[in-house]
């Protein structure tokens, strides 16, 4: 990689890695696993940076790599595997900090979703990707993405219950249907 290309890549990582880490954390349900996933994804971007930097939207490529690596990994793992003490483990104390407590609740709820549904929710609502983009990344039809979104949001509403009501009070301009 030429020095200028490396400088561009380093700038890309510095400015975009936190955004990608948030998505990885929600996907994996665990910060350590998220950091591992993000590192793997960014290494992939690094090894193809010369092509990626010429593309219109490098962050879109990085998001796609991240989500596909997560899905591939989830398929390889056994369905009941829980690799260690996760952030939502009931043995961990709930934070007294409102923002941290909301994150713990959200991470715990998202972990209850199937891997593909997690990916749909994270891509659509955290990363703000459109249905067509999510469908292309996950190899689904647009209709499948929409139906999975609807089903996943209903499940999250049920799982988050009281915490969601509490969070709603901080957004008075919003109301549940």
């Amino acid at each position: 990689m030429r020095p200028g290309e490396q400088a561009e890549f380093e700038d890309f990582v510095r400015t975009r890695s936190s955004e990608l880490l948030r998505a990885a954390w929600l996907l994996t349900g665990d910060r350590t696993a998220a950091e591992d996933l993000l590192q793997e994804a960014l290494v992939r971007v690094f090894t193809r940076w010369r092509q990626v930097r010429r593309a219109d939207n490098p962050i879109a490529y990085a998001r796609t790599v991240l989500v596909r690596r997560y899905i591939d990994g989830a398929r390889r793992r056994s369905s009941g595997e829980r690799p260690g003490l996760l952030d939502d483990d009931p043995r961990l104390p709930r934070s007294a900090e409102p923002d941290v407590a909301l994150r713990q609740t959200l991470v715990a709820a998202v972990r209850e979703l199937a891997p593909v549904d997690r990916a749909v929710v994270v891509q659509r609502y955290l990363l703000d990707q459109d249905v067509a983009g999510v469908a292309a990344d996950l190899g689904l039809s647009g209709q499948a993405v929409r139906s999975r979104s609807t089903r996943a949001l209903a499940r999250l509403r049920h799982l988050m219950g009281p915490e969601l009501a509490g969070a709603l009070s901080t957004h008075p301009d919003k109301e549940m249907p």
Partner: peptide, 30 residues
């Protein structure tokens, strides 16, 4: 499900994860 609900979840997700920052060591490791 309405767009309002989707917007709400999007806002909640971003608020919940807003203070998550990647470690400076990540770049070196990558």
């Amino acid at each position: 499900m309405t767009t309002t609900t989707e917007d709400l979840f999007a806002t909640l997700m971003r608020d919940a994860m807003a203070d998550v920052q990647a470690d400076d060591a990540l770049l070196g490791a990558v």
